[in-house]
């Protein structure tokens, strides 16, 4: 009898262990926060990296956990960016929401970006569900191209290819204006990224997250144990779109600008590559990948832009052919090799 109880205790512990904070995670966030003091001259770049990381994190939710290959996450990023930019542009001096929240409030802009991106994500998710990987690629890419065309063509709304000027977000929490040194922007991006990360972490470690991982591994079996597979995929696709929308909104607010470039194919492709660099399915892959990607870009792109694209292509080929699971995958394999498992974990 006591034997069974021991089994149960062990099983509960091993299930809950998946979601427990470990010291490398704490260290990661501590280092990220301390960069504010360590490299005060690069705060703008760091904010941009965190925003890219959040976009890559949103792809991780659909690709790394639910197994949907997407080439169009930039669509939601762009929608979030334009929504927040328009709110900041036209909200300046307009009547405040509920009498006290200015329409151009940054946090309200994030909510707006998330909602618009989420609505489009929800609407298009039904197309994404249909068919094979190929149709998914086509639909996600197609949606992104449509949004890009709209950003270019709806000149009266978006400013066309010149982009949207005069984006003036209100001070953060009514107190702090986005400054030239990017101090407020860094803290803003850091806090929002951390909060969104916590949400994502909670999602993937919950029963809902388990069901996504199950669908990725075997959707036939998932269906035959009674799981509403399509509803789960719609949900995660919509949530991921909202994440991307928040990232886009943050970029528009901190750079006080929105342009079709924020929706362009390279935005979706870069974010996907960032995730693959870092490793999909770990949540941290996008964040680690964003750092490496931007450092590489600064180094190689400094020589010539073509040079950067060429080596990016080469790195991709090498990654696919020789390195499984990105940087975090390498680290995990290394850990398993040098510190063999002690039973669970």
């Amino acid at each position: 009898m006591s034997d069974i109880d021991a089994d149960k205790v062990r099983a509960r512990a091993s299930l809950l262990a998946e979601g427990r904070w470990r010291w490398p995670e704490v260290l990661f966030w501590a280092v990220a926060a301390s960069l504010f003091f360590l490299v005060p001259t690069k705060l703008t770049l760091l904010s941009e990296i965190m925003i890219l990381g959040l976009l890559a994190l949103s792809i991780d939710l659909v690709l790394g956990f639910a197994g949907i290959v997407t080439l169009g996450q930039g669509a939601f990023f762009g929608l979030g960016a334009y929504t927040a930019a328009l709110m900041a542009k036209h909200g300046y001096g307009a009547a405040p929401l509920l009498g006290f929240i200015p329409i151009n409030d940054p946090l309200l802009g994030l909510v707006g970006g998330a909602i618009v991106a989420g609505i489009v994500g929800f609407a298009t998710s039904f197309l994404v569900l249909r068919g094979s990987d190929l149709t998914r690629l086509m639909v996600t890419l197609g949606v992104a191209l449509i949004v890009e065309e709209l950003a270019n063509k709806l000149k009266w709304l978006t400013g066309g290819s010149d982009g949207l000027q005069g984006v003036l977000p209100a001070p953060l929490l009514g107190k702090w204006d986005f400054d030239l040194y990017g101090q407020v922007a860094f803290i803003y991006a850091f806090v929002i990224l951390f909060v969104m990360f916590l949400v994502a972490r909670q999602l993937v470690n919950s029963q809902f997250g388990m069901s996504l991982k199950a669908i990725k591994q075997n959707s036939l079996r998932s269906r035959t144990i009674g799981m509403p597979v399509n509803a789960r995929l719609v949900t995660v696709y919509t949530i991921a779109a909202m994440f991307a929308g928040v990232a886009g909104a943050m970029l528009a607010q901190t750079t006080q600008f929105a342009s079709p470039d924020m929706v362009a194919f390279h935005r979706s492709a870069d974010a996907l590559l960032i995730l693959i660099f870092g490793g999909a399915g770990y949540l941290y892959g996008g964040l680690v990948g964003a750092v490496v990607f931007r450092v590489m870009q600064d180094f190689l792109g400094g020589i010539t832009p073509q040079y950067w694209q060429f080596w990016l292509g080469v790195v991709l080929l090498l990654l696919v052919l020789f390195v499984r699971g990105g940087i975090l995958g390498l680290l995990r394999n290394g850990r398993d090799k040098f510190f063999p498992k002690s039973g669970k974990d």
């Binding site: 299930l15 029963q207 069901s211």
Partner: peptide, 30 residues
Amino acid sequence: LFADFTPVQTIVLAIAERESKGSEWYRPAG
């Protein structure tokens, strides 16, 4: 089967789906 899960995870998942609790996101699995 779900190759990357453990048997416990697999069966807990099946039970949660049976009880229509498979979309619970606000508490950890297990």
